[in-house]
Every structure is written in C-alpha cells, then in structure tokens.
Amino acid sequence: MGKRMMNSRFDVATGEIGRIARTYLRQRWLPLGNLGGMTRLRELFILIVMHRCGGPLFRLLIPYEHRLTRLYLRLRHRKK
C-alpha cells in the first residue's frame, strides 16, 4: 500500500534529513528567504550520522550506558 511515515532511523520516510542537507547547500549560494539562519554544518553532520548510524551504534553501546555516562561527565567536569 505505502510506506510507514517514520522509518527505522526515526526520520520521516521521505528522507527529511537529506532534504534539509540539500536545502542547506542551496541556501549557501542562492537566496531562499528567511530560514532563521537555518543550521550550522556541524549540527547537520551530526544529525546525518545520527540518523544513519544511530541504530547500530546504540545497540552496541547501550550495555555500557552507565559507564559511558560517568566517563562523559568526568570529561566534562575536567574540561570546566
């Protein structure tokens, strides 16, 4: 009949993150109007990686969630 509206990567089935990326590239050289500054490349890159690779990554890392969270907090505390 059709597709599920949200795919297994938790993106819209029509591929919203890819569309956002293409619009981002367009608006770098073409005036598209007020997109609220749109996004930064770093944020876009992280989201693309997250949608594409997040599933396997979370499956791999979830057993170590608490340890990784403690490590992250320790590193953040050290950075401050």
Partner: peptide
C-alpha cells in the same frame, strides 16, 4: 500509529 500509509497521506501529514 506508524502504519503503512499512501504517499498522499504522508504528504498531507508532514
């Protein structure tokens, strides 16, 4: 809720 839907339904929704 995340059932298979037609392209028209998805376009209307999103």
């Amino acid at each position: 809720e995340n059932r298979e839907q037609s392209a028209l339904y998805t376009y209307g929704y999103t």
